[in-house]
């Protein structure tokens, strides 16, 4: 099985996000970076599939040159090769999907060469909820989003996504696009030999042709902090009668 996982480099934010002076980006001078959580699970899912069924795993990101760190991390987890679509700043979802679609076709001499394309359900930072679906549409492939369980069957995939307290089941033939939710697995921590091997694996850098479509960012804004003071009910088990009163006030008892 030939698998592609598309992932995004995002800052690891703390309890409050600081913005740059021009309000166009997050101030990342004091932040680390990581793979967006859904995509880390997508890489793990891809690695498990090639371990069980054979094949190859390519990882792709659209981002700054530094995003090669996240590609190397995915290679250390077990991917075979990587593609970096070098682009700086926020790239809108239509431009991102267009560049990814073009890179996939380029890999296959005009056709999609992959059996399975995995994305995160949504990027942790921009939260556009659309890149995987746009790529699926452009390539004429079926797409299931929000997947938290994935099984290979004789005729394709059986996948599940959460709905209420249960699961919805979908069956799709391959090739297909699946967008993954965190929780489908626990991503492995790359081993030292894995990290050493990753240094020698090929990373192809491509200058993508970006055709923007919107939405057009004007600026980023920190949401107003709620103006309220927490009411301390007490310390330790001595507070229990006050909690019971609160539950009664809220008609939960």
């Amino acid at each position: 099985m030939k698998i592609l996982v598309c992932l995004k480099r995002v800052p690891t934010t703390g309890a409050r996000i600081l913005l740059t002076a021009d309000e166009q980006e997050i101030d990342t001078r004091n932040l680390g970076f990581a793979m967006s959580p859904h995509e880390e699970c997508a890489v793990e899912a891809g690695v498990q599939l090639i371990e069980q069924h054979g094949g190859s795993l390519t990882v792709l990101t659209l981002g700054p040159e530094e995003a090669v760190e996240q590609l190397r991390y995915a290679l250390a987890m077990g991917a075979d090769d990587a593609i970096l679509l070098a682009a700086s700043g926020d790239v809108d979802p239509m431009a991102t999907a267009g560049a990814i679609t073009a890179a996939i076709r380029e890999r296959g001499g005009g056709e999609n060469p992959f059996d399975l394309l995995l994305f995160g359900n949504e990027a942790a930072d921009s939260g556009g909820y659309q890149v995987g679906i746009r790529v699926a549409h452009a390539l004429g492939l079926p797409c299931v989003t929000g997947v938290k369980r994935l099984d290979v069957t004789a005729d394709g995939l059986e996948v599940r996504r959460e709905a209420g307290t249960g699961w919805e089941v979908y069956r799709v033939p391959l090739p297909a696009v699946i967008t993954i939710r965190e929780g489908i697995n626990l991503p492995r921590y790359p081993s030292v030999p894995g990290r050493l091997r990753a240094k020698k694996k090929p990373v192809e850098t491509v200058e993508p042709h970006l055709v923007g479509g919107g939405p057009e960012k004007i600026r980023l804004v920190n949401p107003p902090e709620q103006d309220h003071a927490v009411q301390i009910l007490g310390q330790g088990p001595a507070a229990v009668p006050r909690i019971v009163e609160l539950l009664q006030e809220l008609r939960l008892l």
Binding site: I17, I26, A124, G214, E216, K217, I218, R219, L220, N222
Partner: peptide
């Protein structure tokens, strides 16, 4: 953005 911890103003 960021699930609601950051807002973006944009033209659509």
């Amino acid at each position: 953005r960021w699930g609601g911890s950051l807002l973006e103003e944009a033209w659509l």
